[in-house]
Nucleic acid binder design. Structure first.
Lengths: 227, 227
DNA sequence: AATCATCCTGACCATTTGGTCAAATATTGC
DNA sequence: GCAATATTTGACCAAATGGTCAGGATGATT
């Protein structure tokens, strides 16, 4: 992630209007949340600092005081989202049960989109626009991760634990299916006629995806251990 | 699609710089193509008329002369994409073979994203931003189409031709999986290390998706007719 | 109370935004 | 050639853009 420089948080030592920096933290949180919403909706170029400031209920100058500039704010949001993403990229081994791994994968990815729909859309907008800020992350960290998983999927195939399918495309299938409900929420709501996607819906969708994808790859469900 | 007013093409009657309007058509095509690229990359707000003009190699005034204003240009592009989309929404009946229908569905959707990647991304950006221009289309035409299909899927389920899965979510699964390769192209390329998605790749992906989704829903492949 | 670093924000700036307009230039039918 | 209609485009405009800065407010530490 060499494109994403670490953001200096401002080296406050002692004095100041706030001993433990609680004000700063609160304001930063507020601004980041507002910015995530605005960037998600309009994309990097389409979002204006003014709009973010209004969303946060602060003067524009204040937003810039905390975040330096628009680009830095955007990069920081991307970093935060990547961190959330990385948090659920746990390692797996050939010895693990394919069904359990795939189900956990689908479930955690689904929950990530669910818990952070704006972050998910922000990420989607970044990729849509050609991933100008995330190129190196995609070609580096994420690529390694995918290839590691792919190798294990292949070994499962050799052991006859799943059908011979291209593991990379399987990963893309799971990503696309799970992200769809956050990124295309407007479409899902418009077509289903609902006014929100409930927790129960999410649970049903998760089960649906798990069922179809596991069966589609010839993976036996976890409860039915062989023998 | 009541939100999308028909665009007046300018009622030229006789005279003018061009008898059959060839100039106009050529310029309009050029501008629309350029605009599709720019809107796809930056979204509605992020795209500037200036950028579109440069992409088309024309002065900004000329773009506005042909298209009236930014909003009209954008709406016209959305309409064009919806028309392409509608062109492959052929009717199906309960008597059709589920496997054939699903495979044709996946294949044609895949080709649409393939043939019009910018249009696909334009649509995606519109939905990402909350579908401000497509609300009525989603809640109207498209919703009807989905429900009609869903009913047929349900009848197939009753006849034991496929597993009992929610048909609407199945449609969303196919949409998301097929669109992913256009919308998230940057991610796919970054992770696979390719510099383009070839025709052969598209064919392999199509077969992969068909295989997994058909099997995942318990639909027998088309060649193997029952008996 | 004095100090000092932080916090806050209105005024300001150069540039870009979407859009208008008038004047110049084509291109046709007659 | 002439009138009528289309096309082209630079000049221009008010508003919005990202960003700077000076100066005042705040409150913990001494």
């Amino acid at each position: 992630m060499s494109e994403l420089p670490t953001i200096e948080k401002g080296n406050r030592s002692r004095g100041g209007a706030d001993g433990n920096g609680a004000t700063r933290e609160r304001n930063e949180r507020e601004i980041l949340a507002a910015a995530e919403r605005v960037f998600a909706q309009y994309g990097y170029r389409g979002a204006s600092v003014q709009a973010i400031a209004e969303e946060a209920g602060l003067p524009k100058s204040n937003v810039l005081y905390y975040m330096g500039n628009k680009r830095g704010l955007y990069v920081r949001l991307l970093e935060r989202m990547m961190a959330r993403w990385n948090a659920l990229l746990d390692d797996i081994s050939v010895e693990d049960d394919p069904a359990e791994v795939l189900e956990a994968f689908i479930r955690s990815k689904m929950q990530l989109s669910r818990r952070h729909p704006e972050g998910s859309r922000l990420f989607a907008a970044e990729i849509l626009g050609g991933a100008p800020f995330l190129q190196s992350y995609l070609r580096g960290e994420l690529r390694q991760w995918v290839q590691a998983r792919a190798k294990i999927f292949e070994q499962w195939e050799e052991r006859g634990l799943m059908d011979p399918v291209d593991p990379v495309w399987l990963i893309f299938l799971i990503w696309s299916a799970t992200q769809h409900y956050a990124d295309f929420e407007a479409q899902v709501l418009g077509i289903t006629g609902k006014d929100e996607i409930s927790d129960a819906d999410v649970e049903r969708i998760t089960r649906f995806l798990t069922q179809v994808i596991l069966k589609g790859c010839g993976v036996r469900p976890p409860s039915a251990t062989p023998g």
